[in-house]
Amino acid sequence: MSDGYTESTIEVAGLPIQVLRGGEGPSVLVIHHETGNPGWLEFHNALSGSRDTILPTLPGWDGTERGDWMRSVRDIAAVCSLLLDELGVADVTLVGLGFGGYVAAEMATANQSRLSELVLVNAVGLQPEDGEIRDQFLEAHADYVKSCFADPANFTDLYGEEVSTEQLIAWDANREMTARTAWKPFLYSQTLPHLLRNVTVKTKVIRGTQDTVVPAAVAHQYVSLLGDAQLIELVGGHNLESDAPEALAEAIVA
């Protein structure tokens, strides 16, 4: 136990998945962005005040072992679903941040019975009807990650005035994982919208009003495709968990 959470490793599909877990109450599984898992943040602390908060690192991200066979977002979703089996949790609130929202939506289409609620935060996964998902492959890593924060101070708080070389290396390796699983079409699925029509679990589609990565249209598309979804707008950028940690946690537990 450190700072209110524990660390463990759980094997799924032959891969050791690192899991941070803290708090008590109904379980909430949080899936991180494609830029990686920056660890236990103020946001996770806020959630863990009333929830059993579970934060896995997707296999292959942040230096963890990758499965060479894992080549689609649906593969990642399958691994995360199996992780829920291994954790033995039911009635889970599944929260996906950005790319993690895409994974969460895929998980919901495969098995919604274990979910009490789905929360998609600035999720990619659908081809925008208006605009395009930002192409990080044309930008330097630090520039792209900075663009995910509405307030540059929040970027600096997390990564420092000068980003470490180790962090740059991790971002590049994470970007490679993004390429391995979501290269084409880039960060969306052409089949997901059809499958979402049968997802009836209660869903919150949360959008940062200053998100420059995902066009606003995507949130509206999720709301119209899902059976029981409400749109919530919060002030902040793509990384709402850093720009508005308390507000986001409150919106999730409300």
Partner: peptide
């Protein structure tokens, strides 16, 4: 080569 490349890419 990742370390050298990310440092070049990010202006280091």
């Amino acid at each position: 080569n990742r370390e050298a490349l990310v440092e070049v890419m990010n202006g280091r």
